[in-house]
Design a protein around this nucleic acid. Structure first.
Lengths: 157, 157
DNA sequence: CCCGTGCATTGATGTACATCAAGAAATGAA
DNA sequence: TTCATTTCTTGATGTACATCAATGCACGGG
């Protein structure tokens, strides 16, 4: 367990890396994301303080995600092997599975507006800290589409 | 840990139920799914033999998913509480997180054809056992769209 | 301070997939 | 078998969102 501080913009892990570490965010904000064949970014998860950010690939397999810092961030880094030895926090794992289940259901059954509204309800603090284009990327829509959804919502109130 | 056998079509759990059990599939095939406000089904996961099927909601919270049997199925049922006491299989949890991560990335970055091709590569045995409309539901597209994708693929070969 | 770069917005247009509807084929129950 | 039901396919049309392009802003560095 090693504590490190990184500046905004620093890339901690790249897609294809073997190095598989787990990051506990103490302060600041990380994000994990992929880049598809067309060069488009898709944000997989935001990691604000208190969260655990990691690629869930097998140790020693190339990972799928990039991880970088959206803000200046302080993190505790552990290798997966060490984490397994210590015995990871079961409840944290279950909470993560729950989060992902909800996300999958949202992606399958909700439109852009519903996804955005769910996001601001669930992560009210994140939205103030990241550019809207990252929110759009997390929601699986374009910045233009998000802009129009927000416009539409503001009209109604 | 209780072993039970259910006929095709039996519903083991409904959305909103509190009863939160975990099902280990010994033989047969389960599925978990939601139904959205428009009455549309979205399959969250298939559970063939060897898989674990569960709603990942907190114990004593109403769950999000329906679970039913697509084939006559034999399962081992455990309550989440009991499972927690025994100490669950960490590696199984990590594998599940990996599966879900891949699924989220697919849903965000791939079109209907790519999702289908990924599915038949990853679950070649499932596709023979379920109607195509369930595959479509799992992929997040309509049966019509899946039919056209398959037609297009068969043309090319 | 000015300039460059990234971000958000808006409009015009394109497209992947949904929806609706009808018919054919497969499946299952009596 | 026979009939009913479900599944799959195909065509016509609709729509949510993407893409492309232009503009106005805010911000940060020199």
């Amino acid at each position: 367990m090693e504590k490190i501080s990184v500046k905004k913009g620093v890339v901690l892990q790249r897609k294809g890396d073997i190095n598989s570490r787990v990051y506990f965010v103490e302060s600041g904000l990380l994000r994990s994301y992929t880049i598809d064949e067309k060069g488009k970014e898709h944000i997989y998860m935001f990691g604000p303080e208190g969260w655990l950010v990691a690629d869930s690939c097998e140790p020693n397999a190339p990972c799928q995600l990039f991880i970088d810092a959206i803000e200046d961030t302080t993190i505790n880094v552990v290798s997966k092997e060490d984490l397994l030895k210590e015995g990871p926090d079961i409840n944290a794992l279950l909470r993560r599975i729950d989060t992902m289940q909800t996300r999958i259901i949202m992606l399958m059954s909700s439109n852009a507006k519903e996804r955005y509204e769910h996001f601001i309800k669930t992560y009210p603090n994140i939205i103030q800290r990241v550019p809207l284009k990252m929110v759009a990327s997390y929601l699986g829509i374009t910045p233009e589409a998000l802009s129009r959804v927000r416009h539409e919502i503001s009209q109604k109130n």
